[in-house]
């Protein structure tokens, strides 16, 4: 299938491809469109591989676009993304998606790279007084923790399932939510893989959060 034919896309230039952790990268490239925090773009390096979707991780007013991604060794696109260098060309679709409207005091929950739309929201100064709960396996994947600590202070909770330490909650996000109170008057925004989203949604619903107060983005 060649989906690129049906899409509006541009070729743009890589500014940097920063290796954050073993298999995690931030791809930074020149921007030639405006977008809303929470939107996604389709990315590719050539048109014979259909575009993969990525949440934009930079702020609405930043000079460039950033994508946070992990390399899947058996994947088609990410091994090609991980070898991109400054000056290389990539294909980027117009931004789209509507995971963009945040209430006041939103509770944002994500695992892994599911942090991307929330970091874009925070960098863009949207979503007043957000709370953020981030789950990862080992501490090197606490992406953007400096910004989050600085901006959110006590409203930032780190859950680490693969290493016990007094520095963060020891266990998965689901364990954290099971053991801690939730607030039925707040809106919950979930982002990440389906397993996490459906498990967290079930826990929140079982704790009295109306399903209409839970909005999810799934990285399928």
């Amino acid at each position: 299938m060649n989906t690129w034919n049906d899409l509006k896309y541009v070729e743009t230039v890589v500014i940097d491809n920063i290796n954050l952790a073993q298999d995690a990268f931030i791809l930074r490239f020149k921007r030639n469109f405006s977008f809303k925090a929470g939107q996604v773009v389709g990315l590719g390096v050539k048109t014979d591989i259909e575009p993969r979707l990525y949440s934009i991780a930079s702020g609405e007013n930043d000079e460039y676009i950033e994508i946070l991604y992990t390399e899947k060794l058996d994947g088609k696109l990410t091994p090609m993304l991980s070898i991109l260098r400054k000056g290389d060309k990539i294909l980027v679709t117009n931004p789209f998606g509507t995971f963009t409207e945040y209430s006041d005091s939103p509770v944002c929950i994500s695992t892994g790279t599911g942090i991307a739309p929330f970091i874009s929201m925070i960098k863009s100064g949207k979503g007043t007084n957000p709370t953020f709960i981030h789950g990862i396996r080992t501490p090197e994947y606490f992406y953007f923790e400096d910004i989050l600590r600085e901006k959110l202070k006590d409203n930032y909770t780190q859950c680490c399932s693969g290493l016990n330490s007094p520095k963060f909650f020891n266990g998965r996000v689901t364990k954290y939510l099971t053991e801690n109170p939730v607030n039925p008057s707040k809106k919950y925004y979930l982002c990440g893989v389906a397993e996490m989203v459906v498990e967290v949604r079930d826990i929140l619903i079982s704790k009295g959060i109306p399903y209409g107060n839970i909005i999810s983005e799934i990285y399928f």
Binding site: L53, G97, T98, F99, G212, I215, S216, E217, F220
Partner: peptide
């Protein structure tokens, strides 16, 4: 749109 999104995450994309 807003109601479908609450039941079907795909609606965002």
């Amino acid at each position: 749109d807003d109601e479908r999104r609450q039941m079907m995450p795909i609606q965002n994309v």
